[in-house]
Amino acid sequence: MLPVDLEMFWKDDESAHKDNCFNADSPQVALGIRMSDECVFAELGEEGNPWGYTPREFRIELNKRYNDKAEKIVGKRLLKEEFPTKDETFPKIKQIGEVFGGRYEDNNNSIWLHGSCTTPQELEKVLDKVDKMDIREFMLPPDWESEKKRIFETYGKKPKLLRHVRGPVTLAMSIYGDINLIYLIYDIPDLAKKFSETISDVIIKMGKVMDEEAGYGPGEAPHGFSFADDNCSLLTPEMYELFGYPVLKRVFNYWSPNEKDKRFQHSDSEMAHLLPILSKLNLTGCNFGPTVLVDEIRKYMPRTRINGCLAPFTFMSNDENKIIEEVKRDCIMAKECKGLNLLTAGSINNGSLLTSMRAVMYAIQNYGRY
């Protein structure tokens, strides 16, 4: 294995994460990689579906064995080893795509959102229906109140807040179609604006419902919000400013009004053309595609923590030389500006090995010292 001083690395990494990875006294670039539950199968040579269902007890066993191996290779236990039982799990609530008439399908590979309309006339009917909808009644299942009470009294647990959703462009293209949305923005901009406004209305309404269900009064709930919007890359800057930007701006204004409140955008696609617009949102964190690099992001976002920019497929290839090459590139760029949290520019997939994580650590310790 590549030589890494593990004790020194993790001590320095703790310092590197302070001040949103802009710590003036940080000795090195921060490491954001902590692997994922998907990775246990290839690492341990076990059969299973990385994206499908794994029985709870088997999942705990896999993660413990994985962590035993991780301690030896990277010096830290990475994956959680405690998972809630079915008895302490809240009933499933409806998701934002369902509010707009969509249908989620788990195909044992991903969760796919099927659309609900394809013409402007059908979209108008969907939006009218959403405007009249009682969001709370629609979201929460019939047994919600009794189960919420039972789980709190038995386990002391409250429902989770809603602080992350599918981004507005990806959501809209799932509901209405990618090409359809592009034509809509060009041909009927007023209806496109209505679609955008309704999306932000729904996000805020859904979030407020879950705040109330968790017992928070007005103004009491924790701040912060994040979006995952891969499809934003398909819009021109002008189209994104009309459709996507207003949603993020309104939601961030509501849940992230303070300077240090979380404002995060994930878009693992080629969306560098949108950086000037996104810069107006004062993002505190971002995770963009592997072609959108540190130096380019920094032109527009001088104080945004950059989660990236290692290509996921490079990391999954387990080619240590290529991994070191990309990490070295990012570390050199970060020395001028800090604020880099070394991560993959997208998901960490099954097949990515612990030795690849160690290669990233080696590169940081050798090329990422400030």
Results as ranks from 00 to 15, higher is better:
M316Q: 12
G285D: 08
V74H: 08
V165F: 10
N231D: 03
G97H: 08
P84T: 13
T119E: 00
R34K: 05
G101H: 01
I135G: 03
P84S: 09
F313P: 02
E47H: 02
L31Q: 03
P27A: 05
F315G: 04
I60V: 15
L274C: 04
M271N: 10
G346M: 06
W255Q: 02
G156M: 04
A70W: 06
H114Q: 10
E43G: 03
I33P: 03
Y370N: 11
Q365Y: 08
N350V: 11
C331A: 05
N63G: 05
V29D: 13
V294I: 02
I60P: 08
D230P: 11
E71F: 06
C337A: 07
G48V: 01
L79G: 12
K335G: 13
P312L: 13
E137W: 00
R263I: 07
A70S: 14
L340I: 08
D128P: 00
A30F: 07
P141H: 04
F152R: 00
I151R: 04
W255R: 13
E43K: 01
L353F: 11
P302F: 05
Q95M: 13
L31H: 04
N20D: 09
K86D: 15
K149S: 09
K18Y: 05
V165A: 12
P84V: 12
N49I: 13
F138V: 09
E38N: 06
E81P: 05
N341H: 07
K148P: 03
K64G: 01
Y367M: 11
F313I: 10
E153W: 04
I96T: 08
P142C: 02
P189L: 03
R34H: 13
D131W: 07
F58C: 02
N107T: 09
G215E: 04
G102V: 14
I185R: 02
R59Q: 11
L191R: 05
G215R: 09
